[in-house]
Amino acid sequence: MEKMTLPDWMKEAPTAVCPASSGKERKGFLDRSLRNFASVLKRAFASGKTKDGPMQNLEPRAKLAGFFLLILAAALFESWIFILALLVMTVCLSAMTKAGAAPLLVRALPAIVFTAVMAAPAVFSFVTPGAPLAGVGGLTITAEGVSTALFFVLRVSAIAALAALLVLTTAEADFFRGLGRLLPGFFSAALFFTFKYCLILVKTAEGAALARKSRTIDSRGVKEAQRWFASRAAFILKKSLNTAEEVSMAMVSRGFEGRVATAPAGPLGFAEYLWLGASSFFFFLSFGF
């Protein structure tokens, strides 16, 4: 029997002929932007599964109203002590409610870092004149500038932490139920639709990017990438409009006449009144400090 041998070309290490099969990370604009955004989006959508804790069990409408009052208080306070107290209270609440300080920091950090970078030039005398504190490369740092920048970052940090805690302790369904009782039904229903369809369209966009990647041997330059972007955006728009048509027909066939009805709200318990009382206390306090 003749001995079977593999041809030489099959023994060679595979060269990266197709980016999709090469195992290498391409550093193209599509990979970078789509993958990052899609993962953030999916993480946010997956946050519907919240850990069980006292904040998580609050009636959604009362919880949303309370958080809104606290965010408003953080925006109104003129005293850094009270804003710091709100921030500390938010971090403590995140630990108490099992949401965790680390996830809270992860969610709030982008806003804090962005604000810190943005506020940095405010420490110099050309933005905030005042008593000189130090000099850097011919520029003077003022005491007033430092306090203005720190105060600004502190306020944004407190608000970002509160908004993050709200999302971390509220399941997706509760969030929209709460919104539906505070806002007109039309807006909350449209927001819920948007939320759901985002995930569908993201999958379409990811599929389009993967299809392009698997068909592409080498980068074809900026013009081709621009054309691809425009054609896919138009395709996603077409898919959106087609889906809108199908959804509206499905809604009409199920008796939808243009009015969005929301289920009657349940009674508020002691915990909800306590939460509303505490948050409104901070809100009223913010008028004086």
Partner: peptide
């Protein structure tokens, strides 16, 4: 209107 606006927003 409702699904169109929602899908326009998602787009």
């Amino acid at each position: 209107g409702l699904p169109l606006m929602a899908l326009g927003a998602a787009f």
